[in-house]
Each structure stands twice: as C-alpha cells, then as structure tokens.
Computed example of a mutant assay.
Amino acid sequence: MPKLVKLYLRQVAVGFVLSAIFVGLLLGFNVANLRGLMLATQGGYIAAFMLFFFNGLVFAGVQFAISIMRMADKDDQGPKGGHRQRVRYGQPVPVRVAAGR
C-alpha cells in the first residue's frame, strides 16, 4: 500500500478517535441538554451516531490537512510572496464620442 494511503488511513483513525472523545465529552457533560434529548427521543441513537460520524469526518480532514502541511521541506528557501510589480497609474485621456440624434 502506498505511503500516502497509509498516512490517510492513520489520520482518519485518529480523527474518528478524537470524534468519539468529543462526542463522549458532549454527552458526558450534557452540553445544551444534549444527552437528555437523545435519551428522551425514540431515534436518539441515530442522532448520536450522526454526531459521531460527521464530527469524525471533520476531524479526520483536519488531521490529514495538518499532517500534509507539516511535510514541507525545512530547507525550502524559494521566493515568498510572489514577485510584486509596481502599479502604474495612467493619466486620463478624453475620448470623443459622436452622439446621434
């Protein structure tokens, strides 16, 4: 398996572990009476799963983005910020337009 795929799968696993911890803390501290709402409704387990799953997607994406950005070479001394050129402001020129009737 390619190294990039292994890295991605590892970061997805870390993201879903973080999601499980986050949702566990949300439900454990009963933030905004979320635990009470999930336990009181008939489909509360679906809401808990969706909260876990979608937070897992977000956390996995952030984990992967951070790991990719940290892969930059330390000795990269290329130009920073592009090549800026001066903006030239021209003089306004009157233009004659023939107006019809």
Rank of each mutant, 00 (worst) to 15 (best):
P2G: 01
R10A: 12
R10F: 08
Q11F: 03
V12D: 00
F16I: 08
V17W: 04
V17A: 00
L18V: 11
L18P: 00
L18N: 04
L25D: 05
L25Y: 10
L26N: 07
F29Q: 15
F29C: 11
V31N: 11
A32G: 12
L34F: 09
G36V: 11
L37P: 08
A40D: 15
Q42R: 09
G43E: 07
G43H: 12
G43Q: 07
G44T: 12
G44I: 08
I46E: 08
A48G: 15
A48C: 09
F49E: 12
L51A: 08
F52T: 03
F53A: 04
F53H: 07
F54D: 00
N55A: 08
G56T: 05
G56N: 15
L57P: 01
A60H: 09
G61I: 05
G61D: 03
V62P: 00
F64Y: 04
S67P: 12
M69H: 04
M69D: 07
M69K: 08
D73M: 14
K74T: 00
G78I: 05
K80W: 10
K80M: 11
K80N: 10
G81E: 01
G82L: 13
R84Q: 12
V87S: 13
R88C: 14
G90E: 10
Q91E: 09
Q91L: 02
P92T: 05
P92W: 06
P92C: 02
V93G: 00
V93C: 02
V95F: 04
R96I: 15
A99G: 07
